[in-house]
């Protein structure tokens, strides 16, 4: 299982990195979906099968498809691609990249400096998650539905054609 974790992690990091480098919106989305899928594998290796499935269905399946849909509507053509490529000159991104490397280095140092702790216990399956969700977290579920309602009403209002 640990090998699976490492390989999936490597793919997730590499593909997320490639999202940053892609000037083409569709290629970037493909890398983003790849990254989400590998994170789903990481979830599975951590013993969380339910959220692994949700990651694929909701994140990669629904949210990323919304992005694809917007690409289709806007038809980001070769002009936009050229523009993105101009922005991606090495001189524009060396600074942020160095900053990020420092940040990552710090974080790795912080977490490695602690004494080793293994992930304990067996896998937490859908049943336990559901019991928690509809038990102590019942109000959270209701609130999440209100949150989605706010998103729905807002998106409806903003998305409608102004002529109505």
């Amino acid at each position: 299982m640990i090998v699976v974790f490492y390989i999936a992690s490597g793919v997730a990091i590499l593909s997320t990195f490639l999202v940053i480098l892609q000037s083409n919106a569709v290629h970037a989305l493909l890398y983003a979906i790849l990254s989400l899928l590998s994170v789903a594998i990481v979830f599975f290796s951590l013993g969380a099968p339910l959220v692994a499935a949700l990651e694929v269905i909701v994140y990669a399946g629904a949210i990323m498809v919304l992005f694809v849909f917007v690409v289709m509507v806007l038809n980001l053509g070769p002009g936009a691609e050229g523009q993105e490529r101009v922005w991606l000159q090495p001189r524009t991104w060396t600074g942020p990249v160095i900053l990020t490397l420092v940040l990552i280095g710090e974080l790795i140092y912080i977490f490695l400096a602690r004494p080793g702790l293994a992930l304990g216990g067996p896998a937490i399956g859908p049943q336990e998650v559901s019991l928690a969700l509809y038990g102590p977290y019942l109000l959270g579920v209701e609130l999440a539905s209100i949150l989605l309602l706010a998103g729905l009403v807002g998106a409806y209002h903003l998305g409608r054609e102004p002529s109505d």
Binding site: L147, A150, L158
Partner: peptide, 23 residues
């Protein structure tokens, strides 16, 4: 959980309210 969900409900409603005059 309630801290985060309350905050996000407030924020998501505010996004749409800020851009309410969408023209």
């Amino acid at each position: 959980a309630s801290f985060f969900l309350g905050l996000e409900t407030l924020s998501v409603a505010l996004y749409a309210m800020i851009a309410y005059n969408r023209s």
